[in-house]
Design a binder for these strands. Structure first.
Lengths: 347, 347
DNA sequence: CGACGGGTTTAGATCGATCTAATGAGATCG
DNA sequence: CGATCTCATTAGATCGATCTAAACCCGTCG
């Protein structure tokens, strides 16, 4: 029923092969025939069948995007960056939202391999098999790990330097005179958690301060708020500043503080991580570490396309530098005349 | 290089046809051969090539998801719902983020047709050709419009009743005694804007109140804040309550009010729309209209799969009921002991 | 004993493109 | 004029699955 190269060939009075050459802008075709074929294509409303073509060429111009939580504004922004970069190159992505479930993740990856994606962008779910990425790679499918890095051997990676980011954060608080600095956030399970904790501990040590209380929680508002209770109950000294795993967590912490009658930015300093759009919106505005979600997404997509084009080139690790953004949640003066982000949100 | 049915057939000592039958769990195959084939599949690490199969069957088990702004938390949540429903059915989605650009949108849709998706979920970009959806449908590709409905003829649709939602909102304010109720938000360009405005106007009329000031702005924080200036400058009477197009817009309005020294929930009532996760987090907590983003996504995905299975069945319109959620941004008492949402946000 | 029948299996065509290797048509040249 | 060389075009095989229609096996029955 749908028109195919055969129909075009018939209508233009040429062979299928010639039509195929025209479709791919081959210089072999004479100008006059090219135009005749183009006309027929137009007239018959032909739609190129990439799936059929891929059967021969072994390339689908398609990648799989496996993300651990799309409803996290940080990952949504990253996804938009990926989508943008792929669009520019003429590629499309399958989306899979694992919601931190390794089982879902395995299922999704299997499905994408069936669809013969040319590569995978992977922000692995918590509890993923460390060998996951390298296993896929050795099966011949390029993988770029994004943000989270599995320790199952070398591979392409795009992310940020979480350790340095957290150091920047800690040092900002130290400069403001804080001596009791607590940490609230995820465990060492995934690489971003590990690296951040390392940065926190390292900065305190380096400045001769004792490592403060560390309260582990999943980075949600709810658990962030609960963490405050654990922080302020039955402890000899209360923290004067709280470093948070990410902004969402920091919002929870600020809520928890408010519920105890403590004013974030006055009674206790709070510092986030990620600089999601909401950070400048909340009151007090949240000081945080900017890591450039959109940019990370773009770089990751581009790296994957490079890897697909050159499968045997040596691995790349792109680590974008984090940046401290001072607002009002740590007291002191704001160093930045913060404009509201122009992010759209209509429907 | 990769193993195919041919290899399996060879290894199991049967024909390709038999292998194919086993792959599709056909009852025609004898138990003993089935097991022999399964074993060979396992041993050779075979990966089914859906693209090749689809060439014959004309079905890719793939849909296109065209969304107008993935970084809007509302759409991110909807996307998660879609992903979930598709996963349960064993389908995958291509993601396209149009960022409200009809040009990008056209490009994406063309690409998805090349990939031979079996259907399309479409939240059309602002400024889309009204005939877009019906044109795609008449080309034989099922489309379910989500949230936004183009007026280019009948078709499948999943969304909410924006008019009723906005009526609920207006009536809540009226019940609280407000007489000067302004409206801040998007124009009548897309159906959700049109319907909301209709609900607002209708509710006021019905209660014998004059229609208040209407300030149009794009639903961003920035423009929401600016709208407040237009609302309170050079007007004979100031509004005592503000109905907002959506929550993001309401956040902007509350910021704008704060900047004028007005306290939302005390001096001026503010009401949002969508009930995104941040609504319960902001202070004051935002009263709003819940429309169930995730649920809408799930229903839309399921409807599309039904439509693909039965292309000639008559169109369905699934309109989920909106629900008023009273928090503190309109003053008065909260009717709901609001727990923090358990949304995860780690990385 | 041959026809019949249900239960399995298979050869070969097919889907819509691409690729290879060969062919055809002119132009150029010794 | 025939050989050679471009430049343009094409027949037919091919990718990895499915589908059709036929064949096969084996027990049963008239």
């Amino acid at each position: 029923m749908p028109t195919t190269v055969k129909d075009i060939a018939l209508s233009a009075g040429v062979s299928r092969a010639t039509v195929s050459l025209v479709l791919r802008d081959s210089p072999l075709v004479a100008k006059s025939t090219r135009e005749r074929v183009r006309l027929a294509i137009e007239e018959l409303g032909y739609v190129y069948d990439r799936a059929a073509a891929n059967l021969r060429t072994r390339s689908t111009k398609t990648i799989g995007l496996v993300v651990c939580e799309i409803t996290n504004p940080f990952y949504a922004e990253m996804t938009a960056g990926i989508d943008d970069a792929l669009d520019q190159a003429g590629w499309v992505a399958f989306l899979a939202n694992t919601a931190e479930s390794p089982v879902r993740q395995d299922r999704f990856i299997a499905r994408m391999r069936e669809q013969r994606v040319d590569g995978l962008l992977l922000s692995p779910a918590e509890g993923s098999d460390p060998e996951l990425a390298s296993r896929i790679r050795s099966a011949g499918l390029p993988v770029v790990e994004v943000l989270r890095r599995l320790d199952g051997g070398p591979g392409d990676y795009v992310g940020t330097d979480f350790t340095t980011g957290m150091k920047l954060a800690a040092e900002h608080l130290i400069k403001l005179g804080h001596k009791q600095i607590a940490y609230v956030g995820a465990k060492r399970q995934m690489s971003p958690g590990r690296d951040r904790l390392a940065g926190y501990v390292d900065a305190l040590r380096r400045h001769g301060l004792p490592v403060g209380q560390i309260v582990h929680c999943r980075p949600t508002r709810e658990e962030g708020a609960q963490a405050v209770d654990r922080l302020f109950e039955g402890q000899p000294t209360d923290p004067t500043a709280i470093l948070c795993y990410n902004d969402v967590c920091a919002f929870g912490v600020m809520l928890g503080l408010a519920d105890r009658g403590l004013v974030p930015g006055e009674d206790v300093a709070v510092l986030g991580f990620d600089n999601i759009a909401e950070a400048g919106l909340y009151r007090p505005t949240l000081s945080t570490i900017e890591i450039g979600a959109r940019r990370i997404g773009e770089e990751a997509a581009r790296l994957l396309l490079r890897r697909i084009a050159a499968p045997k080139a040596s691995f790349e690790s792109i680590v974008l530098p984090p940046r401290l953004i001072v607002r009002t949640s740590c007291g002191g003066q704001t160093t930045e005349g913060e404009a509201l982000p122009p992010q759209s949100a209509g429907h």
